[in-house]
Design a protein around this nucleic acid. Structure first.
Lengths: 343, 343
DNA sequence: CTGAAAGCGCTTACAG
DNA sequence: CTGAAAGCGCTTACAG
């Protein structure tokens, strides 16, 4: 039976014959077991086991109109995929959360215009039931485009439209502002008084909201929070190094640094070392993400943990809800302060 | 026409009516255009454009028996996915190479026994046409299991069976031995005479073949290559640190280190720094992979570049060949020595 | 080169 | 609770 050949697999018809019922009954059993007597159910169950039957998803999809699959769509320029460990965590989490529902994840990359066109054609043709959209930059036109075409879409991170407002697209995100507030409060509690920040790009929610959190806490504490204490990076390690060097030059008396990502924070640490500042003695450093970069060197980073495991499972939950006809919703998840050596 | 509703998409029937031909003719046009007159082809082409027709892949698959999709199967324990940047490069490369053929990539993770069972059931049910198998450890039973079930499988890296021989499974790999020979030759040419190595796990081709390359070149050069100059790691950064520390203790006069992965080499550099050895002055260090870790700190690593971009495209090429009925083949790709600061 | 027709494996009203 | 039947959208011999 378990020969090495790839023979015609058993169909619902084989199961029905084996169980002594009609194909309709087998199908009903397969789809929730409504209107199937216990006796018939037992017979079908046994027949499925004996025949090794597995549903032909193509035949099912042809009639239901659903594909029972979901796309994980990456709209970053491709290098980002490698620099940002969060993508990996998210991808793994989504794959496994979907697997629990027996739904395969199709990985799609839309970095170039040609790729975007292909993806839009593929998705709008109904080849997937919905899209998990991942991009750290927010003005992303694909979310809107797909949503308009009636495709269920859930974005990772808060999507911002052209006018700077949160777009009306289902999304799951960490609470960037509150997370930033937590760590800046921690820096203040350490007695630091000149707290500068390396912010992310202004067209990303992380760039906007983490900066806002920094500003708020400093204002509440009566500490300076002027633009001279702000430098921007693009989340890359090297941009963090450059931004920190710039800040050190501009405000040499800085005694703490809130850096909007761990990777940038590692770059900032390099700049501090080059400048002969000890961490945390001279300058305390706080990061954001709790990514592998946080512990990839010394000192280990005090940072803000993003709940990526929950983000992925929530994204899948919301997407399956959308596919099932529910209304779009936004989920904002709490972060957690992780104290290590750098602050 | 491009309304915001998700209406019944046009079928081959709509196209046929629009073009004034039969559905058979449209189908023939779609599948290579054999036996379709130029006039009919033009009419169909125009009708497809007007209607916005896209093939229903489920209907097609139901009849052809092919799914026109491929699985990318990761059998690592999940943490590996994050530690090894090669997975990312491979994943991206395969996704894009397949996209060029309009074939979606299904990402599957089989780290636990339960996940493995689910994947085997899914794949052997014919839900994908073939599998790109990725695991650095080689005794992987899934390759054999899937191949036996008649599923086209291409492995990344040379698969080794239980008895230590190369398994008869199609695979694509870098030339580990020749790559190791190149960089060890380079260390010798630098005048180094006590060249130790941090090898990978003995159940991985990288662990076996890179070690063999190291041994051969030293033997050819009349230099010592005894077991006291070998320590093993598991490809993690920390294991590299430990192995290097052990070697320094065992053979303090070592003047060069060939480390079988860049990540382990970064760990080794930390051990050398702690021991007060300057790199490359006191100890030259050569890595393997040319991964992001190679340039993620100072000194930048002299290393061996694995052609991951070609590996992914070759994997896809071989897999599509298998699916098309060709015989399994092995592809071994040349590596490249990359000189930087560490040696 | 072309059309009419069968059929892929399933789900789903429908009638009982 | 159950079976017979229609039909999802496509491909593929088959006859012309």
């Amino acid at each position: 039976m378990s020969g090495s050949e790839r023979r015609r697999p058993p169909t619902i018809h084989d199961v029905a014959r084996e169980a002594g019922v009609s194909r309709g009954t087998v199908s009903r059993f397969l789809n929730g077991g409504h209107n199937v007597s216990p006796g018939a159910a037992d017979a079908v169950r046994a027949a499925i086991r004996r025949t090794g039957y597995v549903v032909n998803r193509h035949a099912r999809s042809l009639i239901t109109g659903r594909s029972d699959s979901v796309a994980f769509l990456l709209t970053e320029p491709q290098e980002k995929l490698f620099e940002d460990p969060n993508f990996n965590v998210l991808l793994r989490g989504c794959t496994q959360a979907l697997a629990a529902h027996d739904i395969p994840l199709l990985l799609m990359i839309a970095g170039t215009p040609a790729e975007r066109r292909r993806v839009v054609r593929y998705v709008t043709a109904g080849h997937v039931d919905g899209v998990l959209l991942v991009s750290s930059h927010t003005g992303d036109p694909m979310a809107e485009q797909l949503t308009k075409a009636g495709i269920p879409v859930v974005a990772s991170g808060k999507p911002i439209d052209r006018s700077g407002r949160t777009a009306r697209i289902a999304h799951v995100a960490a609470d960037d502002r509150e997370g930033a507030r937590d760590i800046v409060r921690h820096l203040v509690s350490l007695g630091r008084r000149r707290i500068a920040t390396v912010a992310g790009p202004p067209d990303t929610p992380g760039g906007v909201d983490r900066l806002a959190g920094w500003r708020e806490v400093l204002a509440e504490a009566g500490l300076p929070a002027g633009d001279d204490l702000v430098a921007h990076g693009d989340y890359s390690r090297d941009s963090g190094r450059r931004a920190a060097a710039e800040l050190l030059e501009r405000t040499p008396d800085v005694d703490a640094l809130f850096v909007a990502s761990d990777l940038m924070a590692r770059g900032a640490l390099a700049a501090l070392e080059r400048a002969g500042r000890r961490v945390p003695d001279d300058v305390a450093v706080g990061g954001f993400d709790d990514s592998p970069a946080a512990v990839a060197g010394l000192p280990e980073l005090t940072t803000v943990r993003q709940p990526w495991d929950r983000i992925s499972s929530e994204m899948v939950r919301v997407l399956l809800g959308l596919i099932g006809g529910q209304e779009p919703s936004a989920v904002i998840l709490p972060t957690e302060l992780v104290r290590r050596q750098s602050a």
